[in-house]
Design a protein around this nucleic acid. Sequence first.
DNA 1: CCTCTTGTTGAACAAACGTTCAACAGTGAG
DNA 2: CTCACTGTTGAACGTTTGTTCAACAAGAGG
Lengths: 221, 221
Amino acid sequence: MYGWRLMTELPSHDRGPGPRYRRKTADERREALLQAALDCIVSLGVEKSSIRAIAERAGVSVGLINHHYGTKEALVAAAYRHVADDLLAQIEQRVADVQGDARQKLSAFIEASFSPVNLNGELFRVWLAFWTMQSTSPEIAAVHKERYGAYRAVLEGMIADLQSCDGVGQLDPRLAAIGLSGLLDGLWLEWCLEPATFTPAEGIRLAETWVDTVALRRDVS
Amino acid sequence: MYGWRLMTELPSHDRGPGPRYRRKTADERREALLQAALDCIVSLGVEKSSIRAIAERAGVSVGLINHHYGTKEALVAAAYRHVADDLLAQIEQRVADVQGDARQKLSAFIEASFSPVNLNGELFRVWLAFWTMQSTSPEIAAVHKERYGAYRAVLEGMIADLQSCDGVGQLDPRLAAIGLSGLLDGLWLEWCLEPATFTPAEGIRLAETWVDTVALRRDVS
DNA sequence: CCTCTTGTTGAACAAACGTTCAACAGTGAG
DNA sequence: CTCACTGTTGAACGTTTGTTCAACAAGAGG
């Protein structure tokens, strides 16, 4: 369809005697491109993360991204799934590392939510990007629905465990989980938008108070 | 700087005998452009709201936007301030319309937060756009800080009133306001991303429970 | 009527975007 | 070595973006 012209000059960069590039398997390259895309979104923001910027970060040429992912949207969707999986897995790991009762595990979940890994303006920008694309990209929307459901299911299970041990609270596990995840997300959002508003310790205290007085029925005074 | 060529053909649209356009004062035009920008962001999303789309919606030509606002960023910042002002003013109006004690006024605030005006996927897209721009645009960031501070100040005042009447709660007014605004925003966020998760009535119940058991010390069972 | 101010126009522009694809080249198999 | 496969390249493309500015014209004041 397009015309083809001979290159009129040699590439300006150094042409050593060795290979000009190293080939990778399709899977390896896909993984590397995904990491480069995340790096770009994190450091440059979404709208500046062009195909060219991602390709440069990955040390490859522009054409390779469409070759391996077809479209940019598919690459971003894959990145979303990757980050969301990582985040949830990391929180679950922290919870699993705690040997204690259901209440202590929930505390670990809350503490992990307010760890510097999550309270991170760059991670926030990544999430904003995904949320924005969700309204126009069915693929992104599907990933969101799947990952967010998993997140809340974990929380609901922990609250159900808690109430079966320490007595029922003012709300059933489903609604309590929705409330807690809303509180955690809302505080995370506000902290990322304006970190001076409150400290992570205050955020933890707010979430702990919610669990004690709403999911359970205990007065922490 | 740029060359200038004569128009090679007349405009294709109808040229009536009357004026081709009507002049407005600078203030009137600025207002009209701002409304057109909001309409576009709401209906098309941010990334599709180009200068040309906004100009077409406003029924003017592309150059007029830069003439009145200088840059697109300034226009968006003005739109942000306008929407945020409107939203807060509307909630405060609802609160003022309620004759009752501090607790009933807080209920009006919560109810207004979950009204269809706010639980609106289009409004959510507008907010996402503003949040995204905040990290790159100092002007947008300043507007956010100013408006969000006002929002939380209103909430903190209401909670302080409540506690001075009905007794102190588990949290001081500042932290209680941060928690409640986090909960409201988080639930709003999650509802906009996936409306099937919970109903507005459940959201109201969650927020009311927070007020009764955390800001106050009342068990709603 | 003419004049001046100023809101308005819209083609041109430079830069950036995602995508395409013919050509190139590394790598392992025969 | 040769061959075929395929990962990789990068210029060109078509489109869209925000911005510019010489030219135009509406409307008020004389």
